[in-house]
Amino acid sequence: MVRALKAELIKTFGYATFWVLILLHAILFLLVLMVANKATLNLNGIETNILLSKPYTWGTVAWLASWFNLILALLFIVIGGNDFLFGTYRRSLLDGFNRNQLFMAKLLLLLLIALYAVILITLVALFATPVLNSWDYLFTGYGYILVLFIQMLGYFSIALLIIVLTRNIALTIVIYLLYFAIIEPMLRLFLPDAASQLMPVKVISNLTPMPDFLGIMAKQFNINNQLDTSTMNAIETINNIPSLSQNIAVAIAYIVLFTTLSYIIFKRRDF
């Protein structure tokens, strides 16, 4: 297994596109975080910078970072699909790796990319947001970043399944984007609300919901309890999404399902 992972890393680190996409992801995320840090919201003429305010910083960081999951998914599709594109799975099998080793190496690479992203996001957030200004609430809400990790695995597992099915990078990217932007949203239109909330992309994207900025602001401005209870209740029901723990459980189930399906197809495939 270690040998297969070493081989995977030689292929990956020697690939210029890998570095381009990794840098693109890091730079774009840093830029967005810097902009968010400067952004202010205006409510009834009162300006405040609450996008990255404590104790909600990590939730907002996770939400902002999730915008760039697509870049990482594309990166995984390209790296994962190269072995089909170049026919090098044949070479690896001839040289002695077996299908289990090849699949597990790809899976480990998937985990490593997600892990790298979590580390990068954490470090960038620590230095580009106010979290380090004081030790209060330093890691309050950091669980959102771990949920982001699960979200990335979810996006990658869908990509993995499509790659294994199509064995074609361009086709995988087209199907992946179509499924996210058109196919699943259309399917959800025909499903009952409860069922549509359980569709894979919906579940996975709901893992990092947009923070309830209105609620956050209301809480900040309601320090002196000038808003009545009914107004506060109305604000808290605006973001009506299923509970996070339920979404995490369903997302993990999808990750296991897609990965298992990919493994079965890969294992049975002729090369």
Partner: peptide, 26 residues
């Protein structure tokens, strides 16, 4: 073995391609 056309990573050097084969062969 060499079956059909040679397959390799075109963006890697000859040595890196063979390093991958050496890892596979242990």
């Amino acid at each position: 073995a060499l079956i059909e056309v040679p397959t390799f990573y075109p963006y890697l050097s000859l040595l890196d391609n063979l390093r991958i084969s050496a890892l596979a062969k242990d």
